[in-house]
C-alpha cells in the first residue's frame, strides 16, 4: 500500500482530480438540465411519460456502448465522456424531480395560488422547497452512478482513475486494479456524504428527521 502510494502517489492525485473534474461537470450539467425539465414536465403530464420513457431507454444502453457511440460524434477524450456521463445522470434526477414535484401536497399548491402567488413564486417558494428531499435523493443517486461509470471514460481516453483499472486489467496487475477501485469507491462515498450534508441544509426544517 505504502509502496503503491510511493510509486503512483502523484499520478493518483491527478487521476482522481481528472475523474472528479469529468464527473462534476457531467453532474452539474445533468442538474441544470434535468431539474428544470422535471419541473416543466409536471405541467405537461402526457409529454412527461414520453420524455421519462426516453430517458429510461438511454439508461439501459450499456455504458461502454454509449461511450463508444460518442466517438464518431465527439471524437475521443474528455468531451465525449462528459456527454455520455451527462446523459446517464439525467434519468435519476429527472425522475425524482418529477415525482417530487408531483407529490407536493395539492393543498399547498392551492393555498399558494389562493393567496396570490404567481406560478413561478409557487414553484420556487413552495413546491421546490417541499420537493427538495426527493430531488436531492435523485442527485445523490446520479452522482454515485456518474463517479462509478466515470472510470469507464478512461476507455475513450478521458483519463481518470479508470486508467489504473484498465492498465491493471491489461497488465494483470491486481494492485493497479485495487489502487484504482478503492479511490473510486471512496470518492463516491465522499461525494455522497457531502451531497447528503447539502441536502440537510436545503431540506425544510419540519421534514428533517
Amino acid at each position: 500500500m505504502v509502496e503503491f502510494l510511493n510509486v503512483h502517489g502523484s499520478e493518483l492525485v491527478t487521476k482522481t482530480w481528472e475523474q472528479l473534474y469529468i464527473c462534476t461537470i457531467a453532474l452539474v450539467l445533468g442538474v441544470i438540465v434535468a431539474v428544470p425539465l422535471g419541473i416543466l414536465l409536471t405541467r405537461f403530464p402526457r409529454t412527461a411519460k414520453i420524455v421519462i420513457g426516453i430517458a429510461s431507454m438511454l439508461q439501459t444502453v450499456p455504458s461502454l456502448a454509449l461511450l463508444a457511440l460518442m466517438i464518431p460524434i465527439f471524437g475521443i477524450g474528455k468531451l465525449p465522456s462528459i456527454v455520455a456521463l451527462f446523459i446517464y445522470s439525467l434519468l435519476p434526477i429527472l425522475r425524482n424531480t418529477y415525482i417530487g414535484m408531483e407529490d407536493v401536497d395539492p393543498v399547498l399548491k392551492d393555498s399558494a395560488k389562493g393567496m396570490g402567488m404567481t406560478t413561478i413564486q409557487s414553484i420556487t417558494q413552495v413546491e421546490i422547497p417541499t420537493a427538495m428531499p426527493v430531488i436531492m435523493a435523485g442527485i445523490r443517486l446520479s452522482a454515485v452512478y456518474v463517479i462509478a461509470w466515470g472510470t469507464l471514460a478512461s476507455y475513450i481516453g478521458a483519463g481518470g482513475l479508470g486508467d489504473f483499472i484498465f492498465n491493471g486489467l491489461n497488465l494483470f496487475q491486481p494492485d493497479l486494479i485495487i489502487g484504482g477501485t478503492i479511490p473510486v469507491t471512496l470518492l463516491a462515498l465522499l461525494v455522497d456524504y457531502l451531497l447528503g450534508r447539502l441536502e440537510k441544509r436545503l431540506t425544510p426544517v419540519n421534514q428533517r428527521s
Partner: peptide, 18 residues
C-alpha cells in the same frame, strides 16, 4: 392581484410546512 386582496382559508389549513 385579486387573490392578494381576498383572504382565503381552506379546510386543510394549508400552512407552508417549510
Amino acid at each position: 392581484t385579486l387573490r392578494r386582496h381576498i383572504g382565503y382559508v381552506i379546510q386543510n389549513i394549508g400552512l407552508m410546512p417549510h
